[in-house]
Write a protein that binds this DNA or RNA. Structure first.
Lengths: 147, 147
DNA sequence: GTAGCTGCAAACAATTTGCACACCG
DNA sequence: CGGTGTGCAAATTGTTTGCAGCTAC
């Protein structure tokens, strides 16, 4: 056998960049379909399939967060080191949740030690093990709040 | 105009009872498809469409709780006054959440004043309004816990 | 040159809807 | 009877997979 020809790294393609860029630019949660549309409108036509594939990939490698709409649609958001001066300094590594704006998809990350603790405690009390939890908050961001 | 001929009450049909019975018997969250299968196996053949219709109806009238699987499937559970002696005495009216067993669907209701409070506080801090939240816990019930 | 990408079309799974017929009251 | 409930088949929607061609390295 030959020496491993470099462990199947990820190739740098136009599509991959376009998708990641669009997602970065969005600064909020977006569904695959939305991104697909945005890219098309932008002239950066990318196959829907490809969008899905990259989004799943980003999610798997923890480079993007995922939440599920009430209707079951998946929404993605890039979650790299892009907090310049957040007051609570939530780190990307930390397990966290989001408040997503129902109108524009803009979101705020929130770390909820209390919730994690609560979940673990309640689960333990009930005798349940191997717990995983889902916590998603939806609302209207300041900009889209009815006064 | 004639006098309202009795406000479209719900008719008592074999299917409606079968579905509700199956759901009651299940004592845990079940998907529409699972119930459909269970009923068919039971000889109580009911159309899948009908199962879906009754499940939605039960959910709308708050007679059943709904949670969504990680894969996006909807699971239903009858939530009538069926707690004989729960220690924390969570009432059906109260907004609550569940710990659902990944293996058997059996669940425990948990009221989480702390979570509600946390959600409201965090949302307010971020300036978000009109908040709704989703909290779902999945795990393994004592019976299905690996030791 | 070749394995890893792409993307179109078809496959899929969960859920909904149209519509003719059955059945409760 | 009369309208509500039922269920089959077809339509929808979000997402995945098969596979032939393209492309980065």
């Amino acid at each position: 056998m030959t020496t491993a020809p470099s462990p199947g790294r990820q190739r740098s393609t136009r599509q991959a960049q376009a998708i990641e860029a669009a997602l970065a630019r969005a600064d909020g949660f977006r569904t695959a379909q939305e991104l697909f549309g945005a890219l098309r409108d932008d002239g950066q036509s990318v196959g829907l399939t490809t969008v899905y594939r990259h989004l799943s990939l980003l999610a798997e490698t923890d480079r993007a967060d995922v939440v599920h709409t009430a209707e079951g649609e998946a929404q993605y958001r890039l979650c790299g080191p892009r907090h310049s001066g957040e007051s609570d300094g939530v780190e990307p590594e930390t397990h966290h949740h989001h408040i997503v704006c129902r109108e524009c998809g803009r979101s705020v990350e929130v770390s909820g030690p209390e919730v994690e603790a609560w979940a673990d405690r309640v689960a333990a009390e009930a005798g349940y093990t191997d717990i995983t939890h889902t916590v998603e908050l939806f609302g209207r961001c300041p900009e889209h709040s009815a006064r």
